[in-house]
Simulated scan of single mutants.
Amino acid sequence: MAGNGPPPKARKVRRNADPVAQTVLRWERAEAPELPEFRIERDGELVEFVWPERTREWWQMWIDSPQSDHFGSSDWQYLLDTALIHARLWRGELSAAAELRLRVAAFGATPADRARLRMVFAEADGADQGRGSSGGPSARERYGNLRMMPGGKADQGKG
């Protein structure tokens, strides 16, 4: 008899679907450029720009970072522009701090940035050989030889 039972469930439509299709790009890793030499105008004269030593150390830190393995040429160019902001900060221009923070966050500078970008360090799993952060023996090492005794809970009801 028609009409008995609940009506069929309507197929749910995802409401947060992306309105624009994703573009897949060919990946090309790029080598880090050197901090460039250039001149700036100071008091009407062109003078050689000198990178602060702290900015040179900061640049080398990015070159050596695990994130840099995934930088393309546009990433390095953006980071190079960011180095100029870093230099401004280390020359005492404190108004550069907010822009610097926003820019380095895009590269995963802090643990919070890396978590937001869903970055993890692969070596962390192998470094402790499954021992966890305590360095003690793993559960498999502690309990690996234990076996269920006959007549235990798992054997009840059999037979």
Results as ranks from 00 to 15, higher is better:
3 G>N: 10
4 N>C: 12
16 N>Y: 08
17 A>V: 13
18 D>Y: 05
23 T>I: 14
23 T>V: 15
23 T>N: 10
24 V>H: 07
24 V>W: 06
27 W>K: 03
29 R>A: 11
30 A>Y: 02
32 A>R: 00
34 E>H: 08
34 E>P: 00
34 E>D: 11
35 L>W: 00
39 R>Y: 04
39 R>E: 14
41 E>F: 04
43 D>Q: 13
46 L>K: 13
47 V>K: 11
48 E>S: 14
49 F>P: 00
49 F>V: 01
50 V>Q: 13
58 W>N: 00
60 Q>T: 13
64 D>N: 15
64 D>F: 05
66 P>W: 02
69 D>R: 15
72 G>K: 04
73 S>N: 09
75 D>Q: 05
75 D>A: 06
78 Y>I: 00
78 Y>H: 08
83 A>V: 03
84 L>W: 05
86 H>F: 06
87 A>C: 11
88 R>P: 01
89 L>D: 00
91 R>E: 11
95 S>L: 08
98 A>V: 11
100 L>G: 01
100 L>A: 01
102 L>E: 10
113 D>A: 03
114 R>A: 02
114 R>L: 02
131 R>F: 04
131 R>C: 06
131 R>A: 08
132 G>S: 09
134 S>L: 10
138 S>W: 04
138 S>P: 06
140 R>H: 10
142 R>L: 14
142 R>K: 15
143 Y>M: 07
155 D>V: 06
